[in-house]
């Protein structure tokens, strides 16, 4: 059963990621990226990481995708304004990505992972456990990330502001 769910989710993830790359219309790319993020959240639930699944949906589907949609609509991007690369470049891009895939798979095939063969039934992904780790061992990075957010927010406002001439 869980293998079947894995295959369905994986097929949806890969198909929607391919639509993101190959779609001519930027709006379709954004919408299929939403589908891709939801299926990855499904993978997280399958891996027993509930806290991350919920955070993933909130952060990616809730915040990042709204930003992308907003920018695509604001810039009024459509099929006509879409720049095109020459066919030779597209061919080279596909070939080089395929080569990278082959090399990574070949590198993984030569490693043995006997220690990770069976997943123990654990409560690692529960919000209680992750929250405890986050607020004890990883408290300093957690607080520093708030400074990162503050500087990113100020930077985004300054960069997107209209310049006065």
């Amino acid at each position: 059963m869980s293998q079947l769910i894995f295959f369905i989710l994986s097929a949806m993830t890969i198909a929607s990621a391919l639509v993101v790359v190959f779609s001519k219309h930027p709006m379709y790319s954004v919408l299929s990226l939403v589908v891709c993020f939801f299926t990855i959240a499904g993978h997280y639930i399958l891996l027993n990481a509930q806290f991350l699944a919920i955070t993933h949906i909130i952060v990616y589907a809730g915040a990042i995708m709204v930003l992308f949609l907003f920018v695509v609509m604001l810039l009024n991007l459509n099929r006509e304004s879409e720049p095109h690369k020459p066919g030779k470049m597209k061919f080279a891009a596909t070939i080089s990505a395929g080569m990278l895939f082959l090399i990574l798979i070949a590198a993984m095939k030569s490693t043995t992972m006997e220690t990770f063969s069976f997943p123990p039934p654990s409560t690692n992904g529960m919000i209680q456990h992750v929250g405890q780790r986050l607020f004890t061992d990883y408290l300093l990075p957690f607080e520093i990330s708030s400074i990162l957010f503050l500087s990113a927010m100020i930077g985004a406002v300054v960069l997107a502001k209209k310049e006065k001439h």
């Binding site: 993830t13 890969i14 990621a17 391919l18 993101v20 790359v21 930027p26 790319s29 992308f68 920018v71 695509v72 810039l75 991007l77 879409e82 720049p83 095109h84 690369k85 470049m89 597209k90 080279a92 891009a93 596909t94 080089s96 990505a97 395929g98 990278l100 895939f101 990574l104």
Partner: peptide, 17 residues
Amino acid sequence: LFCIGVMGVLFRRNAII
């Protein structure tokens, strides 16, 4: 998935994509 992302960066010219 990573290779699809790499291919997209090489493939497209639209910076948002």
